[in-house]
Structures are given as structure tokens and as C-alpha cells.
């Protein structure tokens, strides 16, 4: 009987310690979680402020002033706008034997 009680006490002591250790580690993880959540919130807040700042800096009137003072660009006139279909497709290489010349031509086309 005494042996059984002793074993029981030992088991209780071990499981109690294990429970306490688990509790401590869970506490640690919760602290980490709360720290991460604080960091996420701070990062989200920074993102919100940066988004607002970006919107503020890319105001159409500001961009217009900057572009008119720093760039020599003007609004596109209608005769400079063409639909994509109106650009003719590249002609197939006329002389397949002369591969070198055709390669050069390809590169030239791409560069344009």
C-alpha cells in the first residue's frame, strides 16, 4: 500500500513539474506572440502612414508642377497616338541562308 502511495506521489510530482514547465513555456510563447502582434501593428501603422505619404507626394497637381519645371514633356497630341494594330508586323527574313544578317536585323528591331 505504502509503495503504491509513494509511486503515486512520484508520478504526481513529475507530472506537476511538467505542467509547471509547460505553463512557463506557454507564457513565454504568449509574450513572444504579443511582441509579434505589437510589431505587426507597428509595421501596419508604418505602412498606412507611408501609403498616405506616397499619395500626398504623388498628388496630380504636384506632379504637374514638377514635370513642367523639370521635364520638357507636353501632353500627347492626337497625331502622336496610334493603335497597336496600325503598326505593321515585322516582315519574315527574306534570305534564310544569311542567318548572321538576319540576327543583326533582329537585334536592331528589338532595340527600337
Amino acid at each position: 500500500m505504502l509503495r503504491v502511495i509513494l509511486i503515486l506521489c512520484f508520478v504526481l510530482a513529475v507530472s506537476g513539474s511538467a505542467l509547471y514547465m509547460t505553463k512557463l513555456s506557454v507564457d513565454g510563447r504568449y509574450d513572444r506572440l504579443s511582441q509579434l502582434q505589437t510589431e505587426i501593428k507597428a509595421a501596419e501603422n508604418r505602412a498606412i502612414i507611408l501609403e498616405a505619404e506616397w499619395a500626398f507626394l504623388s498628388r496630380p497637381d504636384r506632379l504637374l508642377n514638377l514635370s513642367s519645371s523639370l521635364l520638357s514633356m507636353r501632353p500627347i497630341t492626337q497625331n502622336r497616338v496610334l493603335p497597336l494594330e496600325s503598326i505593321p508586323l515585322r516582315q519574315p527574313a527574306s534570305a534564310p541562308s544569311d542567318s548572321k544578317a538576319s540576327d543583326t536585323n533582329d537585334r536592331g528591331d528589338n532595340a527600337q
Binding site: 505542467l19 505553463k23 507564457d27 504568449y30 506572440l33 504579443s34 502582434q37
Partner: peptide
Amino acid sequence: VSGQDGAKSGQLQTQA
């Protein structure tokens, strides 16, 4: 011991 953990997680959720 086990109940405290539950209370803590609830507290965290209310922050957001």
C-alpha cells in the same frame, strides 16, 4: 494554471 492562459489569449485578441 490552465485558466490563466485562456484569459491571456482573450486579452490579446481585444487589442486589434
